Deep mutational scan, measured.
Amino acid sequence: DEETLERIAKELKEKGWTLIVNGKLITDAREALKWLLEEEERR
């Protein structure tokens, strides 16, 4: 759910983690959240 996604995005940002999505590096939590939401919609 959205709360979980926001928590994940926040944790990613705090830890300075990066996500690699389709070979693209995502360092911004907002971008990561946007991607996660798009993935949820596809299901």
Rank of each mutant, 00 (worst) to 15 (best):
I26D: 03
I20S: 03
W35K: 01
N22T: 02
G16K: 09
G16N: 06
A29R: 01
L25C: 05
K34I: 11
E41Q: 14
L25S: 03
R42L: 07
I26T: 02
R30A: 12
N22R: 03
E6N: 13
R43P: 09
D1V: 15
L36S: 00
T4Q: 09
E11L: 15
I8A: 02
L33M: 07
V21T: 03
R42H: 07
G23E: 04
W35D: 01
A29E: 06
E14S: 05
K15R: 11
T27W: 06
E38R: 06
E40L: 14
W17S: 01
K24E: 10
I20H: 04
K13W: 13
R42I: 09
L33G: 01
E39V: 11
W35S: 03
E14N: 08
E3W: 14
L12M: 08
R30S: 07
E40Y: 14
W35C: 11
E38N: 07
D28Y: 06
K13D: 08
W17Q: 02
A9F: 15
K10Y: 07
L37W: 10
E11Y: 15
W35G: 01
E14A: 05
W35L: 05
K24S: 11
V21D: 04
E11F: 15
T4D: 07
T4P: 03
I26Y: 07
G23R: 01
E6W: 08
K24R: 06
A29M: 14
G23H: 02
A32W: 14
K34Y: 06
T4G: 04
K15Y: 10
I20Q: 01
K34F: 09
K13T: 13
E14F: 01
L12I: 10
A32G: 01
L25W: 11
A32M: 12
L19V: 05
K10E: 08
L19K: 00
G23C: 15
L12W: 12
E2D: 10
E31R: 02
L37I: 08
K10V: 11
T27P: 01
T4H: 11
E38A: 13
K13L: 15
T18V: 15
L5N: 02
L37N: 04
L36D: 00
L25T: 07
G23T: 01
E11P: 00
K10L: 13
N22Y: 08
R30L: 13
R30I: 14
K24Y: 14
E41M: 13
E2R: 13
D28H: 04
R30T: 11
E11C: 15
A29V: 14
E6H: 06
T18Y: 08
I20F: 05
E14Y: 02
L25P: 08
K13E: 14
E14L: 07
E11I: 15
E38L: 10
E38C: 03
L19A: 04
D28S: 07
E38S: 07
K13A: 14
L36E: 00
K24F: 13
R43D: 10
W17F: 09
K13S: 12
E11W: 15
E39N: 10
T27Y: 08
W17E: 01
V21R: 02
V21L: 08
E41F: 11
E31P: 00
E6G: 06
V21K: 02
K15G: 15
K15H: 10
L12T: 01
W17V: 03
L33D: 00
L5S: 02
W17D: 00
R42G: 06
A32S: 01
I8N: 01
I26W: 12
K34L: 10
I20L: 12
E40W: 14
L36V: 03
G16V: 08
E14I: 03
L12R: 00
E41W: 12
E41N: 10
L5W: 13
R42Q: 05
K34M: 13
K13F: 15
R42A: 07
A29N: 02
W35T: 01
A32I: 15
A9Q: 08
E39F: 14
A29G: 01
T27M: 05
W35Q: 03
L12V: 01
L19R: 00
T27L: 07
L25I: 08
L5C: 15
T18C: 15
L25H: 07
G16Y: 07
V21E: 03
L25R: 02
E41V: 12
I20A: 03
E6S: 04
K34A: 12
L19P: 01
A29C: 10
L12C: 15
T27K: 04
K15N: 12
G23S: 02
L25K: 03
K10M: 08
E3K: 06
E14P: 00
E40H: 12
T4W: 15
E31F: 02
